[in-house]
């Protein structure tokens, strides 16, 4: 007599359950909002979990100052439309130093404008729970990540001594200064995310859809000319191509792919037929082997 609910509804219920646990167990939680498709899904889930009220926590965007212009516009529009509490943080020291991925390389840029900025924002907010959009299917080191992932007072992750996590009973116990990273969409796959966006009609930035855009070849990938900060000699090589992005981040570090997919079903079709993993276009992971594991230990998501 129990009608089995579909896998997407089960995933949705699990995520909502996790978000409500966070709201109940922590005094000052925050949801990371990176403007990408996974963040859009998380925001949607948070709106559902607490309706008719607004989500009882803030949304934090770490702005490296090198994000696509469209992402920033999209972010501010969403905050206005849905009325959620948005906090934006950029590393002031990094801005002063004029950190540029073109000049200083992706590692320095990411360390200062992303990892360091995130730590600053988390310390400033004194958040005891930080909700992130990581999925277990994204990367090998994430397959083992807990849904409630403990971080010491330096925001570090210790992969070798994770708390056992059973059933849907999550352990939120921490000392002052420590925190928990919470991953409500751990069990979603990339296909689930796209399918859900499609079914629930969730707004995402148009950068995900193919369009004629000005791109240049840079370190083995195509990147988009988004502003004047791209070195002039590089900009001069720009040509228009039909491209889209599979992930969104800093424009100099986010590779475009050639594509004609202008609708969600076309994107999904393209994804199903491709053999390369989602993060291929993200330059950060290529820096060194095991980059993600190292970054996580240091406190990056």
């Amino acid at each position: 007599m129990n009608s089995q609910i579909t896998h997407l509804k089960q995933l949705e219920a699990e995520s909502i359950y996790i978000l409500r646990e966070v709201a109940s167990e922590f005094s000052n939680p925050v949801m990371m909002y990176s403007v990408g498709k996974d963040s859009s899904v998380m925001l949607h889930l948070a709106m559902k979990a607490f309706a008719p009220a607004k989500p009882p926590f803030k949304f934090l965007h770490v702005d490296t100052t090198w994000k696509f212009k469209e992402m920033i516009e999209f972010r501010d529009n969403r905050a206005k439309e849905l009325g959620f509490d948005l906090v934006v943080h950029s590393n002031p020291t990094g801005i002063e130093m004029n950190i540029s991925p073109f000049e200083h390389g992706s590692k320095v840029h990411t360390d200062i404008m992303k990892t360091e900025a995130l730590k600053q924002a988390l310390n400033a907010g004194a958040y005891d729970a930080v909700i992130g959009g990581a999925r277990r299917d994204e990367e090998k080191s994430r397959a083992k990540e807990r849904i409630f992932s403990f971080r010491d007072k330096y925001h570090r992750w210790n992969p070798k001594s994770q708390r056992p996590e059973l059933w849907s009973i999550y352990n939120p116990a921490i000392q002052k200064g420590e925190s928990v990273r919470v991953f409500p969409i751990s069990n979603w796959t990339e296909l689930d995310i796209w399918q859900y966006i499609y079914l629930e009609d969730i707004a995402i930035p148009s950068l995900y859809f193919a369009k004629n855009r000005e791109v240049v070849e840079y370190e083995g990938t195509k990147i988009m000319v988004d502003d004047e900060r791209m070195p002039k000699e590089l900009r001069e090589t720009a040509k228009k191509e039909m491209v889209r992005f599979r992930t969104l981040g800093c424009y100099p570090l986010t590779g475009a792919i050639n594509s004609t997919a202008t609708t969600l079903p076309e994107i999904i079709k393209e994804m199903l037929l491709s053999t390369s993993s989602e993060r291929e276009g993200r330059l950060i992971d290529k820096d060194e082997v095991g980059a993600m594991e190292r970054k996580k230990i240091e406190g990056y998501f």
Partner: peptide, 26 residues
Amino acid sequence: IINAHDITEKNNNVESNKASASMAIT
């Protein structure tokens, strides 16, 4: 009963008559 699964961006006050196992509700 508000069934979280039925909530949309435009309508956040959808009432259901019933709900069953595994559903997130209010």
